[in-house]
């Protein structure tokens, strides 16, 4: 078992087989730096619980494909990313920090799916972007590809 500590001082025990899906922790274990508790100063307990849930479910990825549990895993993944926007960002940042490739793929794809049909105004709000383009610059970009700004799928809501 490997012990992980979140930035709000909560400790979690995870099986080594599960936790080594994180390249970062795998390297620490190989270098013999994981003998006691591993502190994770960038991750809060709420996010860490989600990440551990994912790691535990994906522990036998290779076996799942052989035994036909692949669909189960797909369903789990779909359910897993069904979370709030802010929460998704926290998991993405944790996955990036811990270097968990598959989790990163899954969450970034989910973020992209949520953003793809959004209007410029909605994305600015969702990503907290301050617009620093002048109106002329903005118009130039629109004139360059007016088709990108038209279409029934474009969604101005923020969620």
């Amino acid at each position: 078992m490997v012990k992980l500590k979140s930035n709000d001082d909560k400790e979690f025990e995870v099986e080594e087989a599960a936790v080594i899906q994180s390249e970062m922790i795998k390297n620490m274990i190989e270098d013999g730096c994981a003998t006691s508790v591993i502190p994770l100063p960038n991750i809060d307990s709420k996010t860490l619980i989600k990440v551990i849930e994912y790691l535990n479910k994906h522990i036998n990825m290779g076996k799942a494909a052989e035994t036909g549990e692949e669909d189960d895993l797909k369903e789990f993944d779909e359910q897993f990313v069904n979370m709030g926007w802010e929460e998704l960002f926290d998991v993405i940042m944790a996955a990036n920090y811990l270097n968990i490739h598959e989790l990163m793929e899954l969450c970034c794809q989910s973020a992209a799916d949520r953003l793809k049909n959004k209007s410029v105004r909605a994305v600015r709000e969702m990503l907290k972007i301050t617009n620093d383009l002048t109106e002329e610059e903005e118009q130039e970009i629109i004139n360059d590809a007016p088709w990108a700004f038209e279409g029934p799928e474009i969604d101005d809501t923020v969620n």
Binding site: Q109, L115, R124, N131, W147, A148, I154
Partner: peptide, 19 residues
Amino acid sequence: EIFSRLRVKSLMRFKCLSK
């Protein structure tokens, strides 16, 4: 990572987000 998963139409539109 996220933007590279968007389609071209979205990317062309999101050029308008900021500099």
